[in-house]
Amino acid sequence: MNLPWGPGGEFARREAAMSISGLLWQLLAIVLALALAPLLTGWVNQCRAWLQNRSAPPLLQPYYMLHKLFLKDVVLAHGASPLFRFAPFAVFGCMLLACAIIPTLSTDLPLAPTADTIALVGVLGLARIFISLAAMDVGTSFGTLGGRREMLIGFLAEPALLMVIFTTALISQSTSVATIVETLAHRDFIIYPSLAFAGIAFTFVSFAENARVPVDNPATHLELTMIHEAMILEYSGRHLALIEWAASLKLYAYSCLGLALFFPWGIAAGSSVLGLLMAIPVLLVKLVIGGFLLAGIETINAKVRIFRAPEFLGTAFLLAVLGLLVRLMLETRV
């Protein structure tokens, strides 16, 4: 496997090809992520409400929520350390970086050399560590409980995510996200059974990571079951707004990564204006369908007990390893 960061490797190549238009498109991708992420959350919530026969909140509800929270004053707990105040910004920054690295519109991203897929998993892990530490910082029992549970889920989800990424990296012979997606998007039509395994495993992982129903319920305020909500109970005002926004960005990042790895059609290769303009509606359609499916899966599943979550994520890990093995067994030889 060629090391992407070596001399003459793809990172060096990319750096040489970096241009003003590339920077502009990268900026557009980031702005689009910031703007679309709450919309995606709103869409998923709306679909969930429809499927559960409830009257749905407006599509723009997350924006109203963010607006309201940004206007409110911050109330800090007495024991809060500087870490508590710093964590929302760190989490938001990590998620924004993740959204910038994942190819949403084009694979020609000037920021792509900053982190390959393994580092991307690390960035997501860093955000998790900050939010868990902040949850434990104030010293309430709920925060500590939520932080511990988050770390439990995280340490089980991370290897599964890495295995999924290794499977795709084996196919494209590179660990750079942009190169993986480029290889997958512009190949001849080949059925990869390993990608099917990896895709199912990735779905499992993203449900667990985004506090979705089989593992956690984003709408719950029941003490004994909540994970993500338990960690952010002490936050208020703009801190809470940033964390909510970061949660939306995380969902957006996972959705885009899944779409880019397993349904990569429509992502532009270069920075031609026409290809990029085509990529935007394609992305929107894919997100709309993906969000609806997400809400559907959430509706037909029941939340599992917290001690069943390791089994759920163990299955994800197993599927990812199977994908890797099937890749080595079936697809590397004629």
Binding site: P193, T315, V334
Partner: peptide, 29 residues
């Protein structure tokens, strides 16, 4: 490489993988 594999072989591989997946699903059920 897999690029030269005929489509029928790819389909058989896919179904074989599904069989393996179902074997695991049965094990976990």
């Amino acid at each position: 490489m897999s690029a030269t594999m005929p489509i029928s072989a790819q389909l058989i591989n896919l179904f074989a993988s599904v069989i393996l997946l179902l074997a695991f699903a049965m094990l976990a059920q």
